[in-house]
Simulated assay, not measured.
Amino acid sequence: MRVTAAVMPRPNQSFEIREIELDAPRAGEVLVRIYGVGICHTDLVAAEGRYSITMPAVLGHEGAGVIEDVGPGVTKVKPGDQVVITFAFCGDCPMCCSRQPAYCRSMPALNLSGKRADGSSSLRDDQGDVAGRFFGQSSFASHALALERNVVKVPEGVPLEIAGPLGCGIQTGAGAIMRSMDCANGTSLAVLGGGAVGLSAIMAASLREMRAIILVEPSARRRQLALELGATHVIDPATVTDVAAAVRSALSAGADYVFDTSGLPGVINAVPKILAPRGVFGFVGVPPASAIDLGPPGTLREMMRGGFTYRGIIEGDSDPDVFLPELMTLYLKGQFPFDKLITTYPLSDINRAVSDQHQGLCIKPVLLP
């Protein structure tokens, strides 16, 4: 079928709105008409050519919409169901079988190759194959193919147009607090970076009734929103000479948990000075390999002396069939207002949305095909 998609023609170019061909669903696949899709930092990294996916490509991996068709063998959903699409996973490896699909052994191949697991392409134009299946969906488009395994039903009352970011950025931030680090009631947290992931962590920390929740973020608008969402303190790094000292002024013993979303080497190097003894550092922001390692002078010694745990986090350790319904239920109860993070744009304005995000004019842009 012919669909409309935002295509990245070559790395570091602007997206182009094109008509391309999308396969009908095969066994285990579902066709989703996209009602809304978030723009995630991972999409922009892929657009720079830093992953294995080739160009031209259709990116997008925070989609939500309505099932229009299903392939043979699909029983989880049916046409007409409203769904959010999350990352792809095999369902069979030891990690998947232990309900840790974010660490699926086939994660890179299923999410970053631009092809189905059998090596075939699901998208093409007049010049040949177009890379798709980005994170199991490629949802910068009017329609996307996913596996029944990586869709989750959206209950009535959750706005379908803005539900897509639950499938990646929002579950990553919330899951970091509620699953990966499993932050305890009455403990303290410092969040480094106030984008959609960081602010989702703030909301989750508030739900966990942590006694101190600190956000380090240069944007005044985001700091104010963090206070509305449950932060107890905010710090503008541009106004302090030592971020660690600023955190310690609020938490003299340090933070029990630190969660980094920035990936900035200077910020990450300050973490050992922020953590309380036996503190946990969770990180999703990853700097260039040449910019940082575990060996800056004294870092390993500080880690050992403090008894620190460093914890890499993928997708908030989410088991989507369990965690996404939990987040949606919290939203319906008024306890997880992720809609406050979202600004919508037509799909045709994708390049403006990307620019606005770069400039800090929005937190989580969502495209409406």
Score class of each variant (00 low, 15 high):
I274D: 01
G312K: 14
G36Q: 08
S188F: 11
M181P: 00
P320K: 11
L44Y: 12
A226Y: 13
F15R: 13
I235T: 07
E29G: 02
F259R: 06
K333N: 10
I162C: 07
P272S: 04
A176R: 08
T239R: 15
G175T: 10
G285Q: 11
E148I: 08
P287Q: 03
V240N: 01
G360P: 02
T232F: 11
L361G: 01
S122R: 14
V240H: 03
A5R: 14
Y257V: 15
P265C: 08
P325M: 08
T329V: 06
S180D: 03
P9M: 05
V3P: 02
Y103T: 10
K340A: 05
T54R: 15
P288M: 05
I342S: 03
Y310E: 01
F87P: 04
G38E: 00
K364N: 02
A220P: 02
V271W: 14
P56M: 05
S138T: 09
P11D: 02
K115P: 04
A212V: 09
G132L: 10
D317W: 13
M303I: 15
L294R: 04
A205F: 11
G295R: 15
A205E: 06
L59Y: 05
Q357H: 04
M107E: 03
D349R: 15
D125M: 09
I67S: 02
